[in-house]
């Protein structure tokens, strides 16, 4: 077959470029075993473990264990994808020259970012489906406001993604891998994600100001009583702005 190489240059419409990029990001993320573990397996294990454990040791909860923990586990899932997975993936994209390569393609940087965000939201949608299915199987009965849950998720994604990009843009790939996992573990243990800030006693005032605590509290408020958590949303918005500003100042494409 003869190949006609005569010039016919031109970029695809921005929308198709962003969709192509989002599809690629999603596929690569789901293909990666460790990322999948982080995205789905750990949150499900935490949920099942917390529900069974609470019943066994008779934790004094104001509501049923599955209703208590599901919003926090969803927050954990959002955090793992928009912070840890994004930071690690972006760190290695820098290392492997992918960002540089795409920088010479018609895809503009805003298109690359939009593609990444869209990819994150797709993966998060998948996580929510799996976690919600497991929770419902365990008897979850949310008293939810869907709009409030959506706003919380989007703001949480924005806050964590901007921080994840900040880490990936200043550290080497291996250091990003270590830092992103470490921060994830620290926030999982002490960041008021799965347990509410009020469970942290006098430290609760501090955890409320962490992006993890704010996202967890916002989702609990949205899924426990269907209420908007204006304070937590403000905290997430501030983190998003700070993270974006830091990223814009420091991010190195190579």
């Amino acid at each position: 077959m003869t190949l006609d190489l005569s010039p016919r240059p031109g970029g695809a419409p921005l929308g198709s470029q962003v969709l192509a990029q989002a599809g690629m990001e999603t596929r690569l993320l789901l293909r990666n075993g460790e990322q999948l573990l982080l995205a789905v397996v750990i949150p499900v294990v935490v949920l099942v473990g917390a529900v069974l454990g609470a019943d066994r040791i008779g934790l004094d909860l104001s509501r049923r264990a599955v209703d208590e923990f599901t919003p926090g586990v969803l927050a954990l899932a959002v955090m793992s994808t928009s912070f840890t997975s994004l930071a690690i993936a972006t760190g290695f994209e820098r290392r492997y020259g992918v960002i540089k390569r795409l920088g010479a393609s018609p895809l503009p940087r805003t298109g690359l970012l939009l593609g990444k965000v869209l990819g994150l939201l797709l993966v998060e949608a998948l996580q929510v489906v799996v976690i919600a299915a497991v929770a419902l199987a365990l008897g979850w009965r949310p008293d939810a406001s869907l709009p409030a849950a959506l706003v919380s998720t989007v703001l949480g994604t924005a806050a964590f993604a901007s921080l994840g990009l900040f880490v990936a843009g200043v550290l080497r790939a291996e250091a990003t891998l270590a830092a992103a996992n470490l921060v994830y573990l620290l926030l999982l243990a002490g960041g008021a994600v799965v347990l509410p800030s009020s469970a942290y006693g006098s430290a609760g005032g501090f955890t409320r100001l962490l992006p993890s605590g704010a996202l967890g509290d916002a989702l609990r408020s949205a899924l426990w009583s269907g209420e908007a958590a204006w304070g937590a949303w403000l905290v997430l918005a501030v983190w998003a702005v700070v993270g974006a500003a830091l990223t814009a100042r420091t991010f190195q494409w190579e």
Partner: peptide
């Protein structure tokens, strides 16, 4: 950018 093609010396693709 849409009018030029670039072959870089190192890297340029996701490892997976």
């Amino acid at each position: 950018l849409p009018r030029i093609g670039v072959m870089l010396q190192d890297g340029g693709a996701w490892s997976g």
